[in-house]
């Protein structure tokens, strides 16, 4: 055996590595996200087996994800059990807000990472004692780019935009709108004060994803919130 590298050939030449380690070409053709996708599939199966409605909430920073969740928790508990995974680069603030509103929450700090991934969610699920029939909200890091590529195993993806952001958001972040099932257009109470054309935003988003559903609402005034609760109950 060759002493230098441990390969099975004897090293009889003076000059080590005159003998050849065969090079081998391995065709893979695998997605770079394949490991995340594998873990997401495990999460998805586990959500199904435990009868948990899992929803991944994505948006730009400050669109109102946490506020919508607070109001949803206040309205649906105790008739429905709700659990929340909060993703933020830093701080425990959002998880504290959720706990105050009355639902168990786990904060994942991604540090410099700009999105949650399936592994983080799987780990968080080990710590949350979710119950059968509950809703699991996963509030992703505020960012419309990075979370788009990372499947968490959620049943449906909900993208939140607010009327202060401009109706061209769907065109600027097509990947996120393409991969979402429902679009919440939040802060409708501010519509009189901003130039946000709801119809235009919807038509832009539909041009990217014809199957996307929309609900216009205000977490602040409560307008449209019932439509959102109804949508949730329709999911099972």
């Amino acid at each position: 055996m060759c002493d230098t590298c441990g390969c099975s050939e004897t090293d009889d030449s003076q000059n080590h590595h005159n003998h050849h380690h065969p090079k081998k070409l391995i065709n893979l053709n695998v997605s770079i996200l394949s490991e995340n996708n594998r873990l997401a599939a495990i999460n998805r199966k586990s959500f199904e087996e435990h009868n948990i409605l899992s929803l991944n909430l994505v948006s730009s920073p400050g669109s109102g994800k946490t506020t919508i969740l607070e109001k949803t928790i206040e309205a649906l508990i105790p008739s429905r059990k709700i659990f929340v995974i909060e993703g933020d680069q830093q701080t425990l603030l959002d998880a504290d807000r959720i706990e105050k509103a009355g639902a168990p929450a786990i904060q994942i700090n991604t540090g410099s990472g700009c999105h949650l991934d399936a592994k983080m969610v799987g780990n968080a699920m080990q710590k949350l004692n979710t119950e059968s029939g509950s809703i699991l909200f996963i509030e992703n890091v505020g960012n419309l780019v990075c979370p788009a590529m990372f499947d968490l195993g959620e049943f449906k993806r909900v993208v939140v935009i607010s009327v202060t952001e401009g109706e061209d958001k769907p065109l600027k972040y097509p990947y996120m709108f393409k991969s979402s099932h429902l679009c919440l257009i939040n802060k409708s109470d501010l519509l009189p004060y901003v130039d946000f054309d709801v119809e235009k935003a919807i038509s832009y988003a539909r041009s990217i994803n014809p199957g996307l559903e929309f609900i216009v609402l205000s977490a602040k005034s409560g307008e449209g919130m019932q439509l959102w609760f109804d949508w949730l109950l329709r999911q099972g």
Binding site: K23, L25, L28, N29, S207
Partner: peptide
């Protein structure tokens, strides 16, 4: 017209490796 059906360019993958 818009949109179009995308038939290429969505790849993001490792095609092959050469090992020794």
């Amino acid at each position: 017209s818009f949109p179009s059906i995308i038939s290429g360019g969505e790849e993001f993958r490792v095609v092959s490796i050469v090992v020794e």
